[in-house]
Design a protein around this nucleic acid. Structure first.
Length: 219
DNA sequence: ATCCCGAGGG
DNA sequence: CCCTCTGGAT
């Protein structure tokens, strides 16, 4: 099976069997989305949603967030992974937006990754969701699933390499939906440990499944 | 007990 | 490339 055929198969599958999201990050504007995504590392959306309302009430915009300090913000972040780092990142991010970007959250990947706490994955989320740019955020789910089902060569060993490969092969108009599909498939079916291959409609073309089963297809 | 929905730093 | 940060989910 060629790579192109593989993509066609996977896209057709997801078009017919789009996974449903149980929880999504809750936000009203780009500022809130940026804060939520920074907080989401190694943490469920559900838990992030539990903490953000209080943060958004106390700090309704970048300007107010830029004026707080560690002691004031930390309690809001306390129950999320890496609270020390994330508290510093949020304040640093807000200060830089005020000082270097005139209080407006920048909307290019190159500018966004200059912000503390914002790496390539976060920058791709912001630009694609807020500005509909055809960017692919490669988090651990997208990375794992893409490699398992063979959308990218096994030699693609970094998130950036996987991102380039996916962007090269997925039609621009489908990038946003494909991102969603891969995330949710990874979150609910193709989980890191003990993937639920028995309920996965992609196992027929899945290299990882075949490897787990000694190269013998399930059906 | 062990793993996990990134980023920064050495 | 490796390590660290960390609480919560399971």
């Amino acid at each position: 099976m060629t790579r192109k055929q593989r993509y066609q198969y996977v896209i057709e599958y997801f078009k017919k069997n789009a996974p449903d999201a149980e929880t999504e990050l809750i936000y009203d504007n780009p500022y809130q989305l940026l804060v939520a995504v920074i907080l989401s590392a190694q943490c469920t959306d559900k838990r992030v949603n539990l903490t953000t309302p209080a943060i958004f009430e106390k700090f309704p915009d970048v300007a107010s967030l830029s004026q707080t300090d560690f002691e004031e913000l930390f309690p809001f972040i306390r129950s999320i992974s890496y609270p020390n780092n994330k508290t510093k990142h949020l304040i640093g991010m807000a200060k830089m937006v005020m000082d270097d970007f005139k209080g407006e959250i920048p909307m290019t990947v190159e500018e966004l990754i200059k912000l503390p706490g914002v790496g390539r994955k976060t920058a791709n989320v912001i630009t694609s969701v807020v500005d509909q740019q055809p960017n692919m955020a490669v988090d651990t789910h997208v990375y794992r699933v893409s490699k398992r089902i063979g959308l990218v060569p096994q030699t693609a060993s970094t998130p950036l390499a996987v991102e380039k490969e996916l962007i090269k092969n997925i039609p621009t108009e489908l990038v946003h939906r494909a991102h969603h599909w891969l995330i949710l498939h990874g979150r609910y079916i193709c989980v890191a440990r003990n993937p639920r291959c028995e309920v996965c409609g992609l196992r027929k073309i899945c290299q990882y499944f075949h490897k787990l089963n000694g190269g013998i297809p399930f059906d």
